[in-house]
Nucleic acid binder design. Structure first.
Lengths: 154, 154
DNA sequence: GGTCTGGATTTAGAAAGCGAACCCATACAA
DNA sequence: TTGTATGGGTTCGCTTTCTAAATCCAGACC
């Protein structure tokens, strides 16, 4: 296992780090659980609430925050014979978190699973070939984790 | 953009979902910021504190939690002429989160950056070729996001 | 023996989380 | 037109967690 060299501080101060900024936006239990549900197709307030079993105050606050941050889009929908209501769907910004959450799912499968095989897996469309989160170069060829180098600007 | 089909509930209840379990473990602002620092090489209590500017109570609680969860290993180190103190290094379980946090970094670069070019980037060892988070099949060849299919067990 | 230093815990006030109850607008039924 | 059901919230108290500052503690060094 590659040991990370000791550092007293990170090379980028958190205030100007896009990872730290991303953590400010999505680094929250309920926020992540909302995004998980949204990626599975949940869109409506009461459906989120039934799924998450969280206080409605928290849910409405988090949904508002995600809309403000640009991850969710709030717009009315109209079921026939019903009145118009808002629904929350993922924007392109929100959808682009999918690889990360799938990666986290597979991390959980690897380290947290309780014995059984994973309840959900991912394949390439049409085939049964399993896929996994990884890094690729410009040509789409895998780069193994120990080959990754970090480069600072300037 | 591929619209996700409407669902009233997620296909896997959160209680038995490894993604939800993973969120319970790492879905916390301070926890994620600690892991970020650890991946940059920070190991010691006071260094984490200087980096994160978080209350020491919170830091010691989170470090304990991460050790209990198996992401960090606590062991003594001894600087010459100093007494032995604990340091916190990433276990294999913690290290394997690196691709996910790199992915989140790049998501932040894409969506949250304030104009400038990213302060940190990632390349394949030895070369200057940029890399990115993606999905690959068993042979290490990229699978595009729209080709990803989810498969439920059973 | 006194002091410094890294790694914490204690304490008390502020913020956030929580569950239950309530509110409100619309559709549809009586 | 009064009533009821329903989805999408807000209001209200209470409890937990967070936060900041102070304190504690053990070993190295003078």
């Amino acid at each position: 296992m590659t040991q990370i060299p000791l550092a007293r501080r990170s090379p980028i101060p958190p205030e100007s780090c896009n990872l730290a900024s991303a953590i400010e936006v999505v680094g929250d239990r309920w926020t992540l659980l909302i995004l998980r549900a949204a990626l599975y197709g949940v869109r409506r307030f009461d459906d989120f609430q039934a799924e998450l079993k969280c206080p409605r105050t928290v849910l409405s606050g988090r949904l508002k925050g995600l809309v403000d941050a640009g991850l969710l889009v709030k717009r009315p929908y109209k079921a026939p014979g019903k009145r118009a209501r808002p629904e929350y769907t993922l924007s392109a910004m929100g959808l682009s978190l999918r690889p990360i959450l799938i990666g986290l799912t597979q991390w959980g499968d690897a380290w947290l699973a309780s014995g059984e095989s994973p309840p959900i897996s991912f394949t390439k469309g049409g085939t049964k070939a399993a896929i996994r989160a990884a890094f690729v170069d410009a040509d789409g060829r895998e780069v193994r984790p120990d080959q990754i180098r970090t480069v600072l600007r300037g």
